[in-house]
Amino acid sequence: MLLKKNWQEKRTLFTFLLPAILILLVSQAYPILYSLSISFRQWALAESLKPKGFVGFNNYIKAFKDPIFLNAIRISFVFCIVATSFEIILGFIIAYFTVGENFFLRLSRTILILPMVIAPVANGTIWRMMLNSQSGLINQLLRFIGIQGPNWLGAPGSALFSVIAIDIWQWTPFAMVVFLAGFSIIPNELYDAAKVDGAGRLKTLRYIIIPYIIPIGFIVLLFRLVDTLLVIDAIYTTTFGGPGFSTNVITLFIYWQALRYFNISYASATSWILSIFTLLIALSLMRFQKRVQTKMWGA
């Protein structure tokens, strides 16, 4: 190829790449490796200003014996699985019904995207007001039909459910947008063939659209599983992990350890447990998605 022999071209292209690599090394690789090294040492700011000696896997072992951390894992799992399932199902349904090119459908699509572009922090404040037990809109509406609504964010029983609902509200549009893009690449011949065979709407949905869209579903699954596992902003602004530890997801647990208790090494170790876990999920889902896609759509 042209590039192989052309040294000057290669050198210039390399200088194009250099700034990006430098930035990534300083602002990503260095912090990540630094936190890895701290996770094997003993360091709490309450005891000393500098990291102390090497303690091996102690911080990691401590994490798996810490009931609060184990509880955080459980809550993260519930959050992640419930939120992701609802987002995929609702996103698919809404996308299916908003396909089309008339004015109202286009307008609806524009409106439906909005929750996704606002700051998760602002999303949190909106829902803090909506779900307020005394004067929030939700409970006002419930009172209107004669039901006394619970203290959504303030009671341990409903807080987790509420923060999950907030996540669903903000991120179902993401699933919708990706599914809409998926619908647009279904070949028209498939629809025509379905029509020739006399398939109605339901049959077309069942035998054409859903099988074709499954690889897209896996992409949504990948992004939402990872992102819900890493959720923090919206919970930070609504319950801050409470009441008790009922919404204390892993990321918030780490945040507490790092920036409230200053257990630096422990926070690093737990964040590495989370990293490894999310990367495993992301990598395996990426591979799986590719396999499904090749199987469904051909190479």
Binding site: Q28, Y34, S35, L274
Partner: peptide, 13 residues
């Protein structure tokens, strides 16, 4: 992969 690891890892370093 930068997209897929927890940003909370970064805060202390």
């Amino acid at each position: 992969l930068v997209r897929f690891y927890p940003k909370v890892v970064m805060i202390i370093p």
